[in-house]
């Protein structure tokens, strides 16, 4: 059974249609990567799944339940979001901000128990933010805040986690750590993740399935090998790139060629590049 399923979903603002009849599904334990150029509707997709933006047409369901039939709190127990540039209140401590992830699980008055604190602390441990627990959010760096919002989403204990460019503010070490964490959590807990990624190389390494969106429509979907091709990248991004297999796992890796820096092939001592198409 799929955890998240979109069936012919259209989303838009006013007159402007952003996503046009998109269908996709995630399986438990899977990381689904959404790629596409700026403004293609990736972030709008996240607004649709969390019902911030009601769909024009189509059906969105989680665990087989139509999200329009769920209450806000119920939905928040199933879906957590890691936004791209979240506003975090500066005077709150890191612990308090992650603890906010427990909100949909609390009673009417909204007081957390020791159990909620335990779940929060484990989420912070997993994202290496526990040593920041008593620091004010205003004192933290962009990358630390990013990891806090990921911890908050984990504390929410959702079935589906939606991440809007979770690695945008992170250094390469924390990019790897974060994506390792997310894919590990998915495979262990049967959670599924829908990740909007700009870095196609990271996407290829971490996503079992990828969807490439262009102008509000799905341009390609399937395994990284099927989606990341020279033609697709040319069609969707308008960029000329080389693709070669990753030396350790044969997944597609993109090489960018700088302006005019092409060696004359006959002078090159290396073996000719192998292209995957």
């Amino acid at each position: 059974m799929s955890t998240l399923e979109l069936h012919g979903v259209s989303l838009g603002y006013g007159q402007h249609l952003v996503l046009d009849r998109v269908s996709l599904q995630t399986r438990p334990g899977e990381v689904l990567g959404i790629v596409g150029p700026n403004g293609c509707g990736k972030s709008t997709l996240i607004k649709g799944v969390t019902r911030v933006l009601p769909p024009r047409e189509g059906r969105i369901s989680i665990d087989g339940r139509d999200i329009t039939r769920l209450g806000r709190t119920e939905l928040a127990r199933l879906v957590a979001v890691v936004p791209q540039n979240p506003v975090l209140p500066e005077a709150f401590t890191a612990f308090e901000v992650v603890l906010m992830g427990r909100t949909p699980h609390l009673g009417f008055l909204g007081y957390e128990s020791a159990r909620d604190a335990g779940i929060t602390m484990h989420a912070m441990e997993a994202t290496s933010t526990l040593d920041l627990a008593n620091r004010r959010v205003g004192e933290l760096s962009g990358g630390e805040r990013q990891r806090l919002t990921i911890a908050r989403a984990l504390a929410q204990q959702p079935k589906v986690i939606l991440l809007d460019e979770p690695t945008a503010h992170l250094d390469i070490n924390h990019q790897i750590e974060t994506l390792d964490l997310i894919s590990g959590l998915c495979s262990r807990n049967g959670m599924s993740a829908l990740v909007v990624v700009h870095d196609l190389n990271l996407a290829a390494q971490y996503c079992q399935t990828m969807i490439m969106i262009n102008r509000g429509r799905i341009h390609a979907s399937g395994t990284p090998r099927e989606v990341i091709t020279v033609e697709n990248v040319k069609d969707v991004y308008g960029a000329d790139i080389c693709i070669c297999p990753h030396p350790l796992n044969d997944l597609p890796a993109i090489l960018v060629t700088g302006n005019g820096h092409v060696k004359e092939r006959n002078q090159s001592p290396q073996a000719p590049l192998k292209f995957i198409t």
């Binding site: 607004k47 969390t50 019902r51 911030v52 806000r72 709190t73 119920e74 939905l75 928040a76 127990r77 879906v79 957590a80 979001v81 936004p83 979240p86 506003v87 975090l88 209140p89 709150f92 308090e96 906010m100 992830g101 909100t103 949909p104 609390l106 009417f108 008055l109 909204g110 007081y111 929410q156």
Partner: peptide, 21 residues
């Protein structure tokens, strides 16, 4: 009674909605 909801609303409105408020 709205203390916790006001806390959550110190995030932006979209995050508050996504946390069930």
């Amino acid at each position: 009674l709205y203390g916790q909801r006001l806390n959550i609303m110190q995030l932006d409105e979209e995050q508050a909605q996504q946390l069930g408020v």
